[in-house]
Design a protein around this nucleic acid. Sequence first.
DNA 1: TTACAAATGAGAATGATTAGCATTAGCAAC
DNA 2: GTTGCTAATGCTAATCATTCTCATTTGTAA
Lengths: 141, 141
Amino acid sequence: MNELIQLKSAGLKSTLPRLKVLSLFESGNDRHLSAEDVYRKLLASGDDVGLATVYRVLNQFEQAGLLVKHHFEGDKSVFELNQGEHHDHIVCLQCGRVEEFYDATIELRQKKAAAERGFAVHDHSLYIYANCIKPKCQYKS
Amino acid sequence: MNELIQLKSAGLKSTLPRLKVLSLFESGNDRHLSAEDVYRKLLASGDDVGLATVYRVLNQFEQAGLLVKHHFEGDKSVFELNQGEHHDHIVCLQCGRVEEFYDATIELRQKKAAAERGFAVHDHSLYIYANCIKPKCQYKS
DNA sequence: TTACAAATGAGAATGATTAGCATTAGCAAC
DNA sequence: GTTGCTAATGCTAATCATTCTCATTTGTAA
Ligand SMILES: [Mn+2]
Ligand SMILES: [Mn+2]
Ligand SMILES: [Zn+2]
Ligand SMILES: [Zn+2]
């Protein structure tokens, strides 16, 4: 029911597909989901939505600040709940596990590097591609 | 003529399209080029190559370590000469200017962040999206 | 030269994402 | 509760970058 309020606050009409998508992200089972992931999960739980609608809703949510979009290596982009605090990502190249981290020093030195060269930072993306150290890595995908 | 040797050393047969592409990057006019950029530039200088060949050659060059591929914000990927030293990028969101930088502290703290979480770093990508501070920015694109 | 595998080029195919448009569903005013 | 209008949805077709297919051409080593 909380989702209804969130949508209103974001200036979005409360529709069934939007509630479903938002609930999925707030269920917290997976933080990082692609459009295709969301689509499949909704179908699996018996909720019928169109893929085009999923794409539209995800982008609207990003614009509204409810979600953040990332471009991990590969083609498809992934979304996660925007919970206020920025963080960067470590992605396992073998099993796909995603770990989040925040390093104040890195953030600071980025700003400095940009300033020194005559840029005002708008945004940045930092992805570390790595391998889980055994035996944590399940070599899934 | 130097390019011929580079190709051989990389284990690649010395063909006309490959020589053209490599020369273009070594001419140094633009460091960061997309496949489409390369294609257009070759056509413009009267060299007839197929777009498919450009894509193939760029990827071979990347595999061979002659080029590095980047995924700046947006759809198309860009390539640059691999000159040994790793660096990260600042991209102007207004004029598209790309500036390179290297920060040892950032590199170090990335490794540390990964190690602390049970990852062995394979690779990383750091892009800072920013705006040129006037009046350097030409607001081109 | 010859011979043959490797490379090229033109166009079809792919895969993620978006656009177009007829149909449906929120929601505010009766 | 109905009505009515706009915004949202869900197909499908279109985009766009990139890859694949395959017939033709080239580099190269004998
Ligand atoms: Mn995250
Ligand atoms: Mn560079
Ligand atoms: Zn792993
Ligand atoms: Zn600029």
